[in-house]
Amino acid sequence: MSEKKIFKNLDDFLGTHFIYTYDNGWEYEWYAKNDHTVDYRIHGGMVAGRWVTDQEANIVKLTDGVFKITWTEPTGTDVALDFMPNEGKLHGVIFFPKWVHEHPEITVTYQNEHIDLMEESRVKYETYPKYVVPEFATITYMGNAGQDNNEVISEAPYKGMTDDIRAGKYFDKDYKKIKK
C-alpha cells in the first residue's frame, strides 16, 4: 500500500482510495475506480451502512490537483465532489430527494442488489424539496489501490473498518484485502 503525495493530472487521481470526514461528522470511503466509475461505502451520517460499486460518474480535472466528480444515483440522489488531495480536503454537495431524507433506511444496503427498490421508492415517495447537504471534508486516508481493483469496496461497512484501513490492517502491500 503506497501513499500518493502529489496529484496533478487525472492519471494521478484515478485508482486512489480515500477516506474522508465531512465537517458535520459524516464519514465516507470513496474509490476512483477508473475514468468513469466510482465505488463507495458510507460509515457515518444519515445513510451510514450504505455501499455501492460500479457507480457511473463524470470524473474531470478542473485544474492541476483539483478534480470534480458528479453522478446521479438510482435513488435520485445527485452528488458533486471537488477533491483537492494535495491539500487533504474536498468539498461535497449531496442533493438527497425528500424520500431519502424521510426514509434513509431504505437505502442502507448494498445498492447494486436493490436497484428495483430504489427506483420503486423514487416513484412511490416525494422527491421534492431536495435535502441539500453542502460540506467541506478532511481527507484522513489516501491509498494507491490501482484502477479497477474490485477488492477495495467489496463488503458492507462495519464498525471500526476505517480505523483498520488507516492502520494497515485491512489491505496488504499489494492492496488486496487481508482475510479475517
Results as ranks from 00 to 15, higher is better:
Tyr110Cys: 11
Glu135His: 12
Val38Lys: 08
Trp30Asn: 06
Gln55Leu: 12
Asn58Trp: 15
Asp174His: 10
Ala137Cys: 07
Lys180Gln: 09
Val38Thr: 07
Thr70Ile: 00
Glu102Ala: 10
Ile139His: 03
Ile19Val: 05
Gly143Arg: 09
Asn112Arg: 09
Asn34Cys: 09
Pro134Trp: 07
Tyr175Glu: 07
Gly49Leu: 08
Gln111Leu: 15
Trp26Arg: 15
Glu27Thr: 11
Tyr158Asp: 06
Phe83Tyr: 13
Met161Cys: 06
Asp174Pro: 09
Pro129Lys: 03
Val47His: 07
Pro97Asp: 04
Ala145Leu: 01
Lys177Asn: 05
Lys179Gln: 15
Met1Ala: 15
Phe83Lys: 10
Ile178Asn: 03
His101Gly: 11
Asp163Ala: 15
Gly146Asp: 02
Asp172Lys: 02
Thr70Pro: 00
Leu14Ser: 02
Glu119Phe: 11
Thr162Ile: 09
Gly146Lys: 14
Val152Leu: 00
Thr37Ala: 14
Tyr125Asp: 02
Ser154Cys: 12
Val132Ile: 08
Asn112Gln: 07
Glu73Trp: 00
Glu56Leu: 15
Tyr158Met: 07
Asp148Thr: 10
Lys61Tyr: 09
Leu10Cys: 05
Glu151Lys: 08
Lys180Tyr: 13
Tyr128Pro: 07
Gly143Glu: 03
Asp54Cys: 14
Thr77Ala: 03
Met84Phe: 11
Arg122Met: 04
Glu87Arg: 13
Val132Gln: 00
Phe67Pro: 10
Phe13Arg: 08
Asn149Leu: 02
Gly45Val: 02
Gly49Cys: 06
Met142Trp: 09
Lys5Leu: 06
Ser121Thr: 05
Arg166Trp: 00
Arg122Trp: 04
Glu155His: 15
Thr37Cys: 14
Ile42Trp: 13
Tyr175Ile: 09
Asn86Asp: 05
Thr53Phe: 03
Val93Cys: 05
Phe67Ile: 04
His36Trp: 15
Asp82Leu: 15
Ile115Pro: 00
Val52Gln: 03
Ala32Gly: 07
Val93Arg: 06
Phe136Ile: 13
Glu151Arg: 12
Pro104Asn: 06
Thr37Glu: 12
Asp35Trp: 14
Asp12Leu: 04
Val66Pro: 01
Tyr141Ser: 01
Lys33Ser: 05
Met118His: 08
Pro134Asp: 00
Asp116Leu: 15
Met142Pro: 04
Phe96Asn: 00
Leu14Asp: 03
Ile139Trp: 10
Phe13Cys: 00
Val52Ser: 09
Gly76Asp: 02
Ile6Cys: 13
Arg41Val: 11
Phe13Gly: 02
Ala48Ser: 06
Phe83Ser: 01
Thr77Ser: 04
Val79Cys: 03
Arg41Phe: 13
Val79Ile: 11
His36Val: 15
Val100Trp: 00
Val132Trp: 01
His103Cys: 05
Glu135Trp: 14
Pro97Gly: 08
Val38Glu: 04
Asp174Trp: 11
Leu117Ile: 11
His91Ile: 15
Leu10His: 05
Gly25Arg: 14
Gly45Asp: 00
Lys173Glu: 12
Ile19His: 05
Leu14His: 00
Tyr22Gln: 11
Glu73Asn: 02
Met1Ile: 13
Tyr31Cys: 04
Leu81Gln: 11
Val47Lys: 03
Ile19Thr: 12
Asp54Gly: 14
Tyr110His: 12
Thr70Phe: 02
Ile139Lys: 12
His17Tyr: 13
Met161His: 03
Phe95Pro: 01
Asp39Gln: 09
Phe95Lys: 08
Gln55Gly: 02
Gly15Pro: 06
Asp82Phe: 15
Lys98Pro: 01
Thr75Ala: 08
Lys176Pro: 07
Lys33Trp: 03
Val100Met: 01
Gln147Met: 12
